[in-house]
């Protein structure tokens, strides 16, 4: 690690320069090399969604039939499950329908959302960076990521929103 102050060649990972005591801890931090990287590091997840876009929510005591109708009417693949105070308590996706319901329950229509939702889903907050959201999606193999503000869902960002954003940046540059 070359010290930016005096040019002394320090051991990799040193916290300060052996020669001039310059602080070196910030040198390890990644810096943006191009436009897409800069957007990933600096833009917040709120840049993906439309300001007026509202997440599609459902109550845990509603039926699977209502959930299916809502998914089709709103053309979404994931519903956010909220409690009385509007706080996010779970997520119900197409995948839950496939893995937990179809072919397992003959008469599923009147069963409750709360029985099949994924409780306490992975979320991000509005001021998290895009890179952080991408990281969560990629590691957790998640297609939808609820964006919350103090527990209240504000938006859902999807893999497709992210692909859209990155390819648009590539086109513009």
């Amino acid at each position: 690690m070359i010290c930016p102050n005096c040019g002394h060649d320090n051991l990799p990972g040193s916290e300060h320069c052996d020669s001039c005591l310059q602080d070196l801890t910030q040198l390890d931090q990644p810096t943006a090399q191009n436009r897409v990287e800069r957007s990933l590091m600096e833009d917040h997840v709120s840049t993906l969604g439309h300001p007026e876009r509202r997440p599609v929510t459902i109550r845990p005591e509603m039926s699977i039939r209502q959930a299916i109708d809502l998914m089709l009417a709103e053309n979404v693949g994931a519903l956010l499950v909220v409690d009385d105070s509007g706080k996010l308590i779970g997520i119900l996706t197409e995948r839950d329908m496939l893995l937990k319901i179809a072919g397992i329950y003959g008469d599923y229509e009147q069963l409750f959302v709360s029985d099949f939702m994924t409780p306490d889903p992975v979320t991000v907050t509005v001021d998290h960076s895009l890179a952080f959201a991408v990281h969560k999606m990629d590691i957790g193999d998640l297609r939808h990521l609820p964006v919350v503000d103090d527990g209240i869902p504000k938006d859902v960002i999807s893999v497709r929103d992210m692909l859209h954003h990155i390819t648009r940046l590539c086109k513009e540059s």
């Binding site: 990933l40 890179a131 991408v134 990281h135 990629d138 692909l163 990155i166």
Partner: peptide, 17 residues
Amino acid sequence: ARRIMHYLVEHFPATVY
């Protein structure tokens, strides 16, 4: 779509991981 996302992420390992 997730494979493509992974491909994109591979371009920015330091930023994302």
